[in-house]
Amino acid sequence: MMVNLRRIRKRQLQQLMMTCFALSVVMVYWESLDYNLMSHIKSYSLRHLLPSLDYITANLTISREEARKFSNHQYLINHKWKCADRDILLLLFVKSSPENFERRQAIRSTWGDETYIERTLGVTVKVVFALGVHPQTLERNRFQRKLLWEDERYQDLIQQDFLDTFHNLTVKLLMQLGWTHAFCAHARFLMSADDDIFVHVPNLIRYLQEVIRTGVKDFWVGKVHRGSPPIRRKDSKYYVSEEMYPWLLYPDYTPGAGYVISSDVASRLYQASLNLNASLYIDDVFMGVCANAMGISPQEHVFFSGEGKAPYHPCIYNQMMTSHGHVKDFHELWRHATDPSVESVSSGLFGKLYCTLIKVRLLCKPIFINTYPCKAAFF
């Protein structure tokens, strides 16, 4: 009897210890989750209560001379005549880093192949890669020689002499806006994308041609973040101090992973950037600040994935615009996504019903997945 009592007490003690451990893990996780959840709820609610965010623009406005220090960088590699063609539908700026040669090659041979686009889709798209210099002094010369060799062969690199780091992404955005204004202002649309983005160019081209037919103005489309709060955790890559940005929420913006703007919007964003403090190094947020200054709002498109990777399925490919987080599978995804048989999968009444059910299964999950929203299943 004594032995059994000891075993029971030992088992109870073990259960108590496991329960305490589980509760401590939950408390630590919930503290972080609760902070993020409450921050988003508070900022989102505030966004709908405030009719204007002009106070942000007013506080970030500086003189042109002060603003020039953020964009006053020399071109190391440039192609002023890249946009010599008159009728350019899309200028596609891919943000890359000096060391990411393989990613650039994959893009050139898949969705960024200008020759394929012109021959197959009948439109002119110009693809260029935006770069700074390698941040490590000892490696810089070696990578610069490689970049010069690469550009001599492909003629598609645009490089300035700033350090190519995460904290200089806003500088890279300023380079894109400045280069577009100076050398390619007549392109009807500008797209900015990361070099780990997959762009379904045929779908995108058809969509942009429809936009032209409907005469849309102030066009800015992508996945939209509305009322997002600044991240104040110092261990986060996206940490922004209160000194840098003291307000509780950001203006609406699209993630820098991939979005499209019309030429008139590109011009107005460039003009806004000439008088704004670009020390805010979250580039997509800074673009939101510029757009807010000009009274421009982003439009949600459910098949721009933002930061997420889209599910692999023909019913998704038929409407896909962008998918984020691709490095090794560019060629395979391009082959499957552009296969002519994809369109037949969703054709007809039964095909549409089948694809709706498939998209519900893939997109409408009880846990949050950072890709296309559930409502995309019904488009």
Score class of each variant (00 low, 15 high):
364 C>R: 04
120 T>R: 07
78 N>W: 04
72 N>S: 15
119 R>K: 14
124 T>Q: 10
289 V>H: 00
14 Q>T: 14
284 D>G: 07
111 W>E: 08
129 F>G: 02
303 F>Q: 00
296 I>M: 03
308 G>W: 07
2 M>S: 13
134 H>A: 08
372 Y>V: 10
361 R>M: 11
317 Y>S: 07
116 Y>S: 11
16 L>M: 12
61 T>S: 15
302 V>S: 04
236 S>R: 07
115 T>L: 10
316 I>G: 01
262 S>K: 02
77 I>R: 05
305 S>N: 06
371 T>M: 02
140 R>S: 10
115 T>S: 12
191 M>Y: 02
354 Y>P: 00
179 W>S: 00
20 C>Y: 02
162 F>T: 08
9 R>T: 11
289 V>T: 07
280 L>K: 01
168 N>L: 07
294 M>R: 08
280 L>N: 04
6 R>S: 11
304 F>P: 06
325 G>P: 00
345 V>D: 06
4 N>L: 14
192 S>Q: 09
328 K>C: 04
207 Y>T: 14
53 L>V: 10
302 V>D: 12
338 T>Q: 01
129 F>C: 06
155 Q>L: 10
107 I>Y: 06
188 R>F: 07
23 L>V: 15
250 Y>Q: 00
171 V>K: 05
205 I>C: 01
190 L>D: 05
338 T>Y: 03
93 F>H: 06
268 R>K: 13
211 V>Q: 06
49 L>P: 01
134 H>T: 11
300 E>I: 08
329 D>P: 03
76 L>D: 10
165 T>R: 07
114 E>R: 06
207 Y>A: 12
353 L>N: 05
352 K>T: 13
41 I>F: 09
363 L>Q: 04
263 S>I: 04
154 Y>W: 09
288 G>E: 04
119 R>F: 00
178 G>I: 04
161 D>S: 12
55 Y>G: 09
357 L>D: 05
186 H>F: 01
161 D>K: 01
86 R>Y: 01
130 A>Y: 03
195 D>M: 06
164 D>R: 03
367 I>L: 13
327 V>N: 08
98 P>G: 10
116 Y>H: 08
63 S>G: 15
275 N>E: 13
98 P>K: 03
240 V>E: 04
72 N>G: 13
8 I>K: 02
174 L>R: 02
205 I>S: 02
212 I>R: 08
202 P>Q: 02
152 E>A: 15
74 Q>H: 08
199 V>W: 00
248 L>T: 12
177 L>T: 07
357 L>F: 09
93 F>D: 11
307 E>Y: 02
91 L>R: 01
157 L>V: 13
63 S>I: 11
292 N>R: 03
10 K>V: 14
177 L>E: 05
325 G>I: 02
252 D>Y: 06
95 K>T: 11
278 A>C: 10
183 F>H: 15
264 D>K: 01
122 G>A: 10
115 T>A: 13
68 R>P: 01
207 Y>F: 14
270 Y>T: 07
254 T>E: 08
94 V>F: 03
95 K>V: 13
291 A>P: 04
337 A>H: 01
215 G>V: 12
80 K>P: 08
213 R>L: 14
207 Y>I: 07
192 S>A: 13
351 G>M: 04
136 Q>N: 14
69 K>I: 15
349 L>I: 15
272 A>F: 00
248 L>M: 13
119 R>M: 11
280 L>G: 05
6 R>Y: 05
298 P>L: 09
323 S>H: 04
68 R>H: 09
110 T>H: 01
370 N>A: 15
19 T>C: 11
